[in-house]
Amino acid sequence: KKTSWTEEEDRIIYQAHKRLGNRWAEIAKLLPGRTDNAIKNHWNSTMRRKVEQEGYLQESSK
């Protein structure tokens, strides 16, 4: 079943993607209940745009 993505999950994906790049299977290990494919789709459909537009979460990672 599809549940919506939480801010916490987005944060984990964002940090992991910065470190690992497009290694979705590795990132998926950090998110129980999410598949690598689901994460990749979420990144491509939602997060990548956010990151590019806003420099997503930069201000809170100090």
Results as ranks from 00 to 15, higher is better:
20 L>F: 07
62 K>T: 13
40 K>N: 08
24 W>C: 02
28 A>T: 01
5 W>P: 03
29 K>C: 06
27 I>S: 02
44 N>G: 08
56 Y>L: 14
37 N>D: 14
4 S>V: 13
8 E>Y: 04
34 R>S: 03
48 R>W: 11
11 R>W: 09
42 H>F: 03
35 T>E: 13
12 I>F: 00
44 N>V: 13
29 K>D: 06
27 I>A: 03
45 S>H: 13
41 N>H: 15
57 L>C: 11
50 K>M: 09
29 K>M: 13
56 Y>F: 12
52 E>D: 13
39 I>F: 00
52 E>P: 14
3 T>C: 07
10 D>S: 05
3 T>E: 15
50 K>C: 12
46 T>C: 12
57 L>H: 06
53 Q>R: 15
55 G>K: 09
12 I>Q: 07
52 E>V: 12
28 A>F: 00
44 N>F: 12
56 Y>W: 09
45 S>I: 12
25 A>D: 08
13 I>W: 00
1 K>S: 06
37 N>M: 13
56 Y>K: 13
61 S>K: 15
34 R>W: 04
4 S>K: 04
51 V>K: 08
2 K>P: 06
52 E>H: 04
43 W>T: 01
48 R>V: 13
51 V>L: 10
51 V>C: 09
56 Y>V: 12
50 K>D: 03
47 M>Q: 05
3 T>Q: 08
43 W>Q: 00
34 R>T: 07
9 E>C: 00
2 K>M: 14
3 T>I: 15
43 W>H: 14
8 E>S: 12
4 S>L: 05
33 G>L: 10
31 L>M: 05
41 N>L: 11
51 V>W: 11
52 E>R: 10
46 T>R: 08
55 G>C: 14
41 N>D: 15
41 N>Y: 04
59 E>K: 06
12 I>V: 12
41 N>M: 15
3 T>P: 07
37 N>S: 11
60 S>I: 13
12 I>P: 01
24 W>L: 00
48 R>C: 10
56 Y>N: 15
52 E>C: 07
62 K>L: 11
32 P>M: 05
51 V>G: 12
46 T>P: 06
31 L>P: 02
50 K>R: 12
39 I>S: 01
43 W>S: 02
46 T>H: 10
13 I>A: 03
28 A>Y: 00
50 K>N: 08
61 S>F: 05
26 E>M: 03
9 E>I: 03
32 P>Y: 02
60 S>N: 06
46 T>Q: 10
35 T>S: 13
40 K>L: 12
39 I>Q: 01
4 S>P: 10
1 K>Y: 07
45 S>F: 06
43 W>F: 12
29 K>T: 09
4 S>G: 08
59 E>D: 08
42 H>C: 01
25 A>M: 05
14 Y>A: 11
45 S>V: 11
59 E>V: 08
28 A>E: 05
62 K>R: 15
48 R>P: 05
24 W>Q: 01
2 K>N: 15
56 Y>E: 15
42 H>G: 00
38 A>V: 06
30 L>Y: 02
41 N>S: 13
37 N>I: 15
37 N>G: 13
27 I>D: 01
24 W>F: 03
5 W>N: 02
41 N>P: 00
35 T>C: 09
10 D>W: 04
8 E>A: 15
39 I>N: 02
55 G>F: 09
59 E>H: 12
37 N>C: 13
30 L>D: 04
11 R>Y: 10
61 S>H: 06
57 L>K: 14
13 I>H: 00
24 W>G: 03
7 E>T: 02
58 Q>D: 09
38 A>R: 05
8 E>I: 08
50 K>Q: 05
61 S>I: 15
62 K>H: 04
17 H>Y: 13
51 V>E: 09
60 S>R: 09
36 D>R: 02
37 N>L: 14
11 R>S: 09
